[in-house]
Amino acid sequence: MRVVLAEDLYLLRDGLTHLLSAHGFEVVAAVESGPALEQALIEEKPDVAIVDVRLPPTFTDEGLQAALHARQREPGLPVLVLSQHVEQLYARELLADGTGGIGYLLKDRVFNAEQFIDAVRRVAGGGTAMDPEVIAKLLVSNARDEPLAALSPRERDVLSLMAEGCSNAAIAARLFISEGSVGKHTASIFGKLGIGPSDDTNRRVLAVLAYLNG
């Protein structure tokens, strides 16, 4: 799988390159600035881009903007955004086009190599990987909003794990319930949020979007 990596800190860029190579990814470009990232995304056409929000030269949100631009040119281009902090605002901007293939994680998550690699694979496969901290913020701010208020506490748990990007099997393992009952919960969630039948990945993205937009 071909990866474009944008990260301005040398140590982290190098570490990520090693980590990804060790897990069978091919890092086709590891860049350190916004313009270089834009160029790499156009030239390399990667299977997934791993992008730091803040990049030179302005050290604002160049990485995020480059990712959003690339997805405008090429809808659904899988992008995993890394940051020292997570904001619901950025999560919404990333998910707004509703095409999936979006990850948004704290840099800390790199510590757990297995989970991180898993997240990269999910994003590359068109799924989502939202940081648990984004989900936690959502729970605080959207607790009272319709239609999420209609969800049962269990369904909420399932939805937040779904937003993190977990598969039904992973959700079942995390909540200590059977995969079958996870399936029932997800069906009920799709029903309550008014998401019609389509392929499962897309429905999951829509559910997460509904979640984000409260």
């Binding site: 604002t60 904001e87 605002l89 701010s141």
Partner: peptide, 29 residues
């Protein structure tokens, strides 16, 4: 991270005042 938020919120550096306020608006219950 919490400490940095209290000193100078990263989103303020990245996006300026309007978006930083939009961000806390989203986080508010």
């Amino acid at each position: 991270r919490t400490l940095v938020r209290g000193i100078h919120p990263p989103i303020l550096a990245e996006r300026g005042l309007a978006d930083a306020i939009r961000a806390i608006a989203l986080d508010s219950p």
